[in-house]
């Protein structure tokens, strides 16, 4: 049998355009699997899991976010109530401090003759010491 002659380069180029598989080599199995997985993820919209996360964690992350979204209004309402209470408590505490200071000052003026004298000197019509 006569060996076939070397193909004409022009003919070879024509044949290559007709056959896309011409010149391709088989990829290694790991690379092929990675390519298939990437194709599946791109078609289904699933995000690529971070290294070290198993498939169970991948499904739990969207659930945690959904739960957080559901609880956010309740947390916001609680935060507003707590702020309202804190503002009221602060105002009440300030009022009580001022009240206590008035009583302390009045008591001191009732027992200290120097303070009593000062009160009488500045306002002789209003005695500071009453019984």
């Amino acid at each position: 049998m006569h060996p076939s002659p070397a193909p004409d380069p022009a003919l070879r180029a024509l044949l290559r355009r007709a056959d896309p598989a011409d010149g391709l080599t088989s990829p290694p199995p790991a690379a092929f699997a990675a390519a298939v997985h990437a194709r599946i993820r791109s078609e289904t919209g699933l995000a690529r899991p971070a290294p070290g996360i198993d498939s169970v964690s991948v499904t739990h992350v969207p659930r945690a976010r959904a739960l957080a979204r559901q609880l956010l209004p309740l947390a916001a309402a609680l935060a507003l109530l707590a702020s309202l209470g804190a503002g009221s408590a602060f105002a009440y505490a300030k009022h009580e401090r001022e009240r206590s200071e008035r009583y302390v000052s009045a008591f001191a003026r009732s027992i200290d003759p120097w303070l009593m004298h000062a009160d009488r000197s500045t306002s002789p019509a209003t005695p500071a010491h009453r019984h």
Binding site: A76, L84, G87, A91, A106
Partner: peptide, 29 residues
């Protein structure tokens, strides 16, 4: 939410101060 909480705190403070009886100058006299 943070801004609303701040407004709520100020509102609580203001309403409480208005509701509390003001101290008279003769308190404890």
């Amino acid at each position: 939410i943070f801004i609303l909480a701040l407004v709520a705190a100020l509102a609580g403070y203001g309403i409480t101060r208005l509701a509390l009886r003001p101290l008279s100058p003769q308190t404890g006299a």
